[in-house]
Design a protein around this nucleic acid. Structure first.
Lengths: 197, 197
DNA sequence: TTTTCACTTGACATAGTGTAAAGTCTGCTC
DNA sequence: GAGCAGACTTTACACTATGTCAAGTGAAAA
């Protein structure tokens, strides 16, 4: 499984992203992906050992295409903790809609598949690191509200920014991406920031 | 399906709750439940047409056993919005651990089953109503932070109190039930309450 | 011309849900 | 005490999606 046609592999990944985006991560079978990529179902298994492995590879592929690092640059360049928190939420809020289909599929797979669970956990820990950095920046500025320890504030922010919460707010509550970003910014600022008197 | 032995039905429901609690809502098959109830797998279908129907009936049964209304009484008796919000979070935070197994199973089923999805939505809308009432109480007192409209604050509080968030904070972050309650109280108060100057 | 590689085709194993039909056991009623 | 009805058992099978296996095709490279 190392010398196969690299173009076919790319076509499978591209088809997977397309289908998962289209169907919002639900009801996409191996056969559907194969058909979309113009090959037989079995051929998919020549490139990816299992559905979970394909999903994991797809998230990596998508991260590459979407260039996460470039997107995160503004928040990393922030001068204050307050600014960093706002810019991180901005970046994340713009990012979720782009990854939602794939993320949802992984989220669904994680309940029955250990590989998918591990991949999801890995992504979420990376995201958590951004939350931790923002909270640490507040802490360093002395603007983290005294109710919080950095650790627990990170837990809370991380949870608040989960994909499931984004899903609930946009799908069930009808918030737009713009509204999500601005309201969560307000929420996070109120919850975690205390300007020194 | 109306004149069957009511005792067997109760035994199935009781076994379902027990197994779902034990296994935290995962990997519980119809056959497992049947065995636990001391009957054959097929007999379960004499009482419940499908797995989804069984899960829905189980949530209803559990609500009855746990007496939700009694639990909610204190928050309904609150004198101020701030108090009501705190008491509602208290009540909800004590409630989730009791229903987690069943809730998780329903949550997993909802992705592939419309009946389960409808049942879950129904329960969540009932929970949302408690959130709405707390936010309305703040609003009536004039203590709802001016950043929020009652509607959007309800959306945010409702999302914040989701079972998935409780799961993330307790399982992934290691918060105890006590910590969950006290920290979410702080979070919600900071986010939504503004004492008049 | 033969080998090799990527892919196809078709058959099959597996898991869990749900359906269907025939058989057993118990208690009730005439 | 014969027979009937209801609740449950047993066995068999359909269905869906994942994943495995083995033989076959077709084109390019050695």
């Amino acid at each position: 499984m190392s010398s196969e046609n690299i173009e076919t592999r790319a076509r499978i990944l591209e088809a997977t992203v397309r289908m998962l985006e289209e169907r919002r991560g639900r009801g996409v079978r191996m056969g559907d992906i194969a058909t979309a990529a113009g090959i037989s179902r079995q051929a998919v298994y020549l490139h990816f050992a299992s559905r979970a492995e394909l999903l994991v590879a797809t998230t990596r592929y998508l991260d590459e295409v979407l260039d996460v690092d470039r997107r995160l640059a503004p928040s990393r360049a922030a001068n204050t903790g307050v600014e960093r928190l706002a810019l991180y939420i901005e970046c994340w809020g713009q990012y979720i809609p782009d990854i939602y289909g794939v993320a949802k599929a992984l989220l669904l797979a994680k309940d029955t598949d250990d590989a998918a669970a591990a991949a999801w956990k890995d992504r979420m820990l990376a995201m958590r690191d951004g939350c931790r950095a923002a909270i640490e920046a507040l802490h360093a500025d002395g603007t983290l509200a005294p109710d919080w320890m950095p650790r627990t504030a990170t837990d809370a922010l991380w949870t608040m920014l989960s994909v499931q919460n984004w899903e609930n707010l946009t799908v069930e509550c009808g918030w737009s991406t713009r509204q999500y970003v601005s309201r969560i910014k307000v929420l996070a600022k109120r919850a975690f920031v205390e300007e020194p008197a």
